[in-house]
Every structure is written in structure tokens, then in C-alpha cells.
């Protein structure tokens, strides 16, 4: 019995792995966008260093002079490092959220509209596994790929700046201190991503459900229904108990919590909010699976 369960788990894991590969093969922009953003940032940084050094007249690295009025410039301080890394983390995170939104909105809708749905449905893969793989890509893989992109970019740009300053200026900053603080920021950002997964889960799974059911114009349904529901709630009730709650989750966690910093607590992880989020997310996920299996004859 135990062995049988082990084989089942192995088969399910393998199936999930190939379903994730499929998504990454089909949607290469998921990794191309962060790679492209990273390269652009590194190249811009290198160009800035070269242009900056040229402007200072030290491109030949012989005569260097820089006067600073009113004090000394200092690099390598922890606050600078944290702010520097946060810039990349926030930038990549927000673009990643837009990519997630676009992905989940089209994931099941486009699959159904394409004739290749007959091929996908002719394979021994359950609707549960397919929808799960798409949810995993949208809610987990894309944010992690963008996080990795932001981490690699921040580390590379720091290295480029350090090389430029070391070669062309008398300024010094401790690369190891910068990296230490930066890596700490990167790791603590993972806590925020976990919070965002729970916080934004119901919203993105609602979009996935719409993608699974809409006959046309999924964007209008995805935002039109909550918009209309919100207005009705406002008119008929004192507050906006459901659609207001859902709309709040459309706002990325760092903005929703009011903290422009990595947060691993707050509204997402408060016990009742956490349980409600998980419950609503589970209901929406099951509805999306049911819809892929039973809605819209192929």
C-alpha cells in the first residue's frame, strides 16, 4: 500500500514537472522578460560608468580628480545597500505581477480556444493537474523567476559599480558589506513573496477561474464582475464585504500593507485573514478545475 502510494506520488510529481516545462516552453516570456530587464540594467550601468568616468576626465585612468564640496561621499553603508537592492526587488516584483496577471488571464482561455486542446485532452493528464500547474506557474514560478532576476541584476550591477569605482575613482566601498546587506534583503523579500502568495492568491485564482469559463473577452469578465459587484455592495450594504475584500487583494501586498518594505506579517498573515484567503482560494481553484472539465464543450 505504502509502495503504491509512493509510485502514485512519483508519477504525479513527474507529470507536474512536465506540465511546468510545457508552460515554460509555451510562454518563454516568463523568463525572457526578467533576463532582458537584467541585461538592460547591467548594460545601462556599464554605459553610465564609462560615460561618467569620461565626463570626469579619467577615462584614460591617469589623471583623476574629483572635488566634493561640503563633505565626503560615502559608499558601502547598510542603508544605501538596502535601498539599492529594494529598488531592483520592487521593480522586478511589480513587473512580475503584471506578467502573472496576463498569464493567468489567458492560461486556460487561450488553451481552450486553440485546436491543440484536442491534443492536450488526449493525454492521460487530469484537469486537476493542468489547472494546478497553471496556478503554480502564475502564483509561484513567475514571482520566483522575477525575484531571481532582481537578485542577479542587483548583484551584477553592484559588481559593475564596484569595478568602475575601484578602477576610475578614489572612492571605496565595501563590496562584501554591500553584498551582505543586499543578500539579507533578498532573502527577507522571500517572506514578502510568501505573504503575497496568500494575500493575492484569491484574486489571481479568480482571474484563472474566469480564464477557464469565459466564452470571450476574459479581461472584461475578470474585472467587470468584481467592479459591478463592488458597486452593488456599496449601494445595498454598509460596506463591501466580499468584492471590496477581493479588490483589496488585487493590490500588491507591499502597497496594501502600507509598508514600502519587505513584509512578512500584516494583513496577509493575520490568522483570520490567512484562513479566509486560503479558503476562498481553494474554492476558486476547485471551481476552475470543474470548469475546465465540464464547461464549454470542445
Amino acid at each position: 500500500m505504502g509502495e503504491l502510494n509512493g509510485v502514485k506520488i512519483m508519477v504525479l510529481t513527474r507529470t507536474l514537472r512536465y506540465l511546468l516545462y510545457r508552460e515554460l516552453w509555451e510562454h518563454p516570456l516568463i523568463w525572457k522578460i526578467p533576463v532582458g530587464l537584467g541585461l538592460i540594467n547591467v548594460l545601462l550601468c556599464m554605459a553610465s560608468i564609462v560615460l561618467g568616468l569620461n565626463y570626469l576626465g579619467v577615462a584614460d585612468f591617469n589623471e583623476f580628480s574629483l572635488k566634493v564640496e561640503g563633505g565626503e561621499l560615502s559608499f558601502g553603508e547598510a542603508e544605501s545597500a538596502e535601498a539599492f537592492f529594494k529598488f531592483f526587488l520592487f521593480g522586478f516584483f511589480l513587473i512580475g505581477q503584471l506578467v502573472t496577471l496576463s498569464y493567468v488571464l489567458s492560461a486556460l482561455y487561450r488553451e481552450r480556444e486553440d485546436r491543440s486542446i484536442l491534443f492536450w485532452k488526449s493525454l492521460p493528464v487530469s484537469d486537476l493537474m493542468v489547472v494546478f500547474s497553471k496556478a503554480v506557474i502564475g502564483l509561484l514560478v513567475i514571482p520566483i523567476i522575477f525575484w531571481l532576476g532582481s537578485a542577479a541584476t542587483a548583484l551584477l550591477v553592484t559588481g559593475v559599480i564596484w569595478i568602475g569605482l575601484s578602477i576610475g575613482t578614489p572612492f571605496e566601498f565595501s563590496l562584501s558589506l554591500f553584498y551582505l546587506v543586499g543578500i539579507k534583503s533578498l532573502i527577507s523579500w522571500l517572506g514578502m513573496l510568501l505573504g503575497q502568495l496568500i494575500w493575492g492568491g484569491p484574486f489571481f485564482l479568480w482571474i484563472l477561474l474566469v480564464s477557464s469559463t469565459a466564452r470571450s473577452a476574459p479581461f472584461l469578465w475578470a474585472f467587470g464582475i468584481p467592479g459591478l459587484g463592488y458597486l452593488i455592495e456599496l449601494t445595498m450594504f454598509d460596506g463591501t464585504p466580499f468584492f471590496g475584500w477581493l479588490w483589496a487583494r488585487a493590490t500588491p501586498l507591499p502597497f496594501a500593507s502600507g509598508e514600502w518594505a519587505p513584509v512578512s506579517s500584516g494583513p496577509a498573515l493575520e490568522p483570520i485573514g490567512l484562513l479566509t484567503s486560503i479558503f476562498v482560494a481553494a474554492v476558486l481553484f476547485i471551481a476552475a478545475v470543474f470548469a475546465r472539465r465540464h464547461f464549454r464543450d470542445i
Binding site: V11, Y18, Y21
Partner: peptide
């Protein structure tokens, strides 16, 4: 990829 995927999901 077609072969990889089919081999991955079909026992």
C-alpha cells in the same frame, strides 16, 4: 518537446 512531454506524462 512533443516527445519529451508525452514521455513525461504517459506511462
Amino acid at each position: 518537446e512533443v516527445l519529451d512531454f508525452t514521455a513525461g506524462v504517459h506511462l
